[in-house]
Every structure is written in structure tokens, then in C-alpha cells.
């Protein structure tokens, strides 16, 4: 499973870089410019990306034409919104370096923030 992890990222990079939809062969040819890779490998990876919802596809002739569902930044925004809206105990319960804070917390930090602003001026 992990084998395809980096290849999935690479295929998505190619898909996002191009404007129009692509067949497996289109992507294969692009990837082959960097190193040898088998058609079936790319086909498997693109099928997995379709199963996971990263790509849509339409049957054209004997094969499929693949397209991206969202742009990279749309996907990233969606993931980060989930990260930023989660509370400490619900959602993913991530350990953040620091979260945005409420008014009381900002008030408590007032002096420290002013100190930091002054210090930045003298840096």
C-alpha cells in the first residue's frame, strides 16, 4: 500500500500542473521522461486515486480520461479547515504549537505582545 504513496503524490502533481484531462498514457509519458515506469503501475495508481475521490474519470473508447475534482489549493483549504476548526477534544484532537485564542487569552497576552513588537523594532 505504502509503495504507491509517493507515486500518488507525483501523479496528482502532474494532473494539477496540466489544464486539460489526461489519459493514463499521457501521465505515463510525462513520468517516463524522468525514469522508466510501467503502464500498469500508473494505471493502478490512477485507479486508486479515482477510488479515493482525488480524480474523476470518463470512459472514452477502451480507456478512461481522468480529471481532477478540486484544485490543489481547494483540497488543501478543505483539509486545513478541518484542522483549524477542530477543538482540543473533538475532531482530530491535534497537538498544535499554538491555536488562535479567545478575547481573554489575547488580553492576558497584551503586555507580552507589546514587548515583542518593540523588540522586533530593534532587531
Amino acid at each position: 500500500m505504502e509503495l504507491f504513496g509517493d507515486l500518488e503524490a507525483e501523479v496528482m502533481d502532474r494532473m494539477w500542473a496540466r489544464v486539460e484531462p489526461a489519459t493514463v498514457r499521457d501521465i505515463l509519458e510525462e513520468l517516463q521522461q524522468a525514469r522508466p515506469i510501467a503502464y500498469t503501475t500508473v494505471m493502478t495508481v490512477m485507479d486508486r486515486l479515482f477510488q479515493k475521490g482525488w480524480l474523476t474519470r470518463e470512459r472514452v473508447g477502451r480507456g478512461y480520461v481522468y480529471a481532477t475534482t478540486l484544485t490543489r489549493s481547494e483540497y488543501t483549504a478543505r483539509q486545513l479547515n478541518e484542522v483549524l476548526s477542530g477543538t482540543d477534544n473533538r475532531g482530530m484532537a491535534l497537538l498544535h504549537f499554538v491555536r488562535s485564542m479567545d478575547a481573554a487569552e489575547a488580553e492576558a497576552l497584551g503586555d507580552a505582545l507589546r514587548w515583542r513588537a518593540q523588540e522586533k523594532g530593534t532587531d
Binding site: 483549524l84 476548526s85 477543538t87 482540543d88 504549537f97 499554538v98 491555536r99 488562535s100 485564542m101 479567545d102 478575547a103 481573554a104 487569552e105 489575547a106 492576558a108 497576552l109 507580552a112 505582545l113 515583542r116 513588537a117
Partner: peptide, 22 residues
């Protein structure tokens, strides 16, 4: 900590208090 805090968009609607940043 302070620079990241100052750069945060305030999000009071979400009610997320940082874990004792102050």
C-alpha cells in the same frame, strides 16, 4: 509563540482557546 499568535486570524466564533498560551 507570540508571532504566531499575533498572526492568527481571531476566530471567536469557533470558541477555541489556545491551551494557556499566555
Amino acid at each position: 509563540l507570540l508571532d504566531l499568535v499575533a498572526g492568527q486570524v481571531p476566530a471567536p466564533a469557533l470558541g477555541m482557546a489556545g491551551v494557556g498560551a499566555a
